[in-house]
Design a protein around this nucleic acid. Structure first.
Lengths: 197, 197, 197, 197
DNA sequence: GACTAACCGAGACGGTACGTCCAGTCTTGAC
DNA sequence: GTCAAGACTGGACGTACCGTCTCGGTTAGTC
């Protein structure tokens, strides 16, 4: 039986050194010029140790990003729907904006040819934001602020899509005002039937 | 002045062989496994000839995609706005869907770390579609089908954004019905103020 | 300190395969057409492994020649000085004659523009022959067969010089009879003052 | 019929520019790093023009050296044999000593694997010196300063050999005193039978 | 408290592709 | 017809990383 590594014996200091090195080097060199060799050298670790625990550069960086990004709790509920969505989207825009976006942008690029990485990236990094978005939208729906039959998957596309559109073509992330406009328009697409008094 | 090679003396047969080889190999191996060496070998050309005229793998593939994709004129005007937009978006979805999407998806991935490539990709491949979209929308605006003050840049984000959102997270391109729904929602965001009699 | 590779971990099988391949290919193609690529391919070794341990093609071939040539112990002492010198010179002529001279001739050619290679070639391949020559000459001097004040460095030039003169201008190595004549003449230059009774 | 270039149409200015560039670059870079490309660029000439008139780098450099070195007439006859030989050998040593020896040393190196170049080098550059040596030696022989049956080919080896021996192993060319010693010893090898009064 | 299996650092190894250099050939247009 | 200019194929260069593979030396958990 091909004995797989025993996580009990894993050395936590090495894990941390590797993840830290990966993020540092990603910031310094950019994701594309980041190499396993360089991570190993910077972390004072042998390449073998990296390959023992991760399957690829993407997996290392994903774990590093996951560790670093997820303490961020960007769920808010002030009662004002547009403002809350604006806050949520701002948090994502933040992740994808300089100066600390090189790791996550690199992951997105790599995910384009790597199904497994795409899945892990979605589930580990993006899922919590989607969940928060869905919860907030569902609540708004119950409150009658949105059409009762609004399809929240379509909503997700309409609210988040513009961010990725802009990311892909280096159009610049929307600033606060542009984001405000975007949210306003997207909300109109899901607004309830004209509320007559 | 950094004397660049003299295009007058360029051999067109080599150019074509290189671009054709690049697209073939991209389809066979995927963009990530495509190499300049392999393109040169397949095209029966020396690597030097590739490096003389293009600065990177991305530049070669971009030109190949440009040559191949742009004869496609997907501008339509049937008079029915939603149907026309549906047609335009379908054409883009087609570009980004299997089985011939590996080249362009690879370019999008590479463009994420490469400003210049992103710019060229946008201008050479995407720009004509944006122009067509803008023209059709402007016409609709003049016809009163859209709000007269609708911001067409925001519209671009809302209509095209969902496609890139789905691309990035491997959520699958929308099928005809989903696309119909998307277009319908996005149009609501820009519909003219309710025309009361 | 420029950390050099750790010789303890060196794989001897690779070393041997490389040196063997180098000599074979040198014989097949000639030194000038010998390439590091071909050595690596023939030896079933990566180019990196060659570059890790040797600085140039010359260094590889030198080590190969050293390994192959130096077990040859061509020191002889039959008591007859001219015969012994003839034997020693014959051995060197052998090294520089077809069909196995391409490696060493190539090294000599390369040494002409490469100080370090010249030094190593002299010390590792030629030095043992010079030492043997000097020992035999010194013994003859003590026996009174040579002038007591003969300068052995000059003797070295006079005995070995002709071989290199002929090598350089492709004049053909001396055959046994020509060598006999050369030795006889050179010995006259160092003969003791005529011993009158 | 493969029309060969017509020498009548040859442009002399190009020939000179090429030969001059070859010598300059050889001095600047060393023979090994000299390339046809660089000669063409420096001479303001197309590579084709070089290949039209010469078969290889060696051929160009040989012609350049021939042009430059042969005006030197180092034939002397003062009546004092040892002094005359010393002068002749000094002239050759000069050719092979820094700072202007890189071209000729390179040719010698290349001649070691190139029969044709070796032949041309010998005939065009070396032959005049050998002829002068032989003439002077023959005159000495007639004068009774040398053994009447001395083999002048052997003499050539003994006088010139040491120079090439030293060249090959970077032992340094002999200085005036060492050369004096060498000539004296070599002459002893050919001295006439003891001249009793 | 000694044993022993796994992890660990170090880094050599076979590969693959990189981007560069130059050889030698070929084509074009000026003279 | 020769020439400068320079694009072309071809092939080796020396480098960079890949992912795999020993090596000894720790270092935990087990007996």
């Amino acid at each position: 039986m091909p004995t797989s590594p025993n996580p009990l014996r894993r050395r936590e200091t090495s894990r941390r050194a590797i993840l830290d090195a990966a993020l540092q080097l990603c910031a310094e060199l950019g994701y594309g010029r980041l190499t396993i060799e360089a991570i190993a050298a910077r972390a004072g670790v042998s390449k073998k140790t990296i390959y023992r625990w991760w399957s690829s550069k993407g997996a290392v960086v994903l774990e590093a990003v996951d560790d670093a990004a997820n303490p961020v709790a960007d769920h808010v509920d002030t009662g004002h729907l547009a403002a809350d969505l604006h806050a949520q989207l701002s948090a994502v825009i933040q992740l994808l904006s300089p100066p600390n976006n090189s790791a996550i942008t690199g992951l997105i690029a790599e995910a384009l040819h790597d199904d497994e990485l795409a899945h892990d990236l979605r589930e580990r990094v993006i899922r919590p934001r989607i969940t928060a978005f869905n919860e907030r939208m569902r609540k708004a729906q119950l409150d009658g602020q949105l059409a009762p039959d609004a399809d929240l998957d379509v909503a997700l596309d309409l609210f988040y899509g513009p961010i990725y559109h802009r990311l892909v073509f280096h159009l610049g992330m929307p600033d606060a005002e542009q984001l405000h406009t975007l949210v306003a328009h997207a909300l109109r697409a899901f607004s309830p039937p004209e509320s007559t008094p």
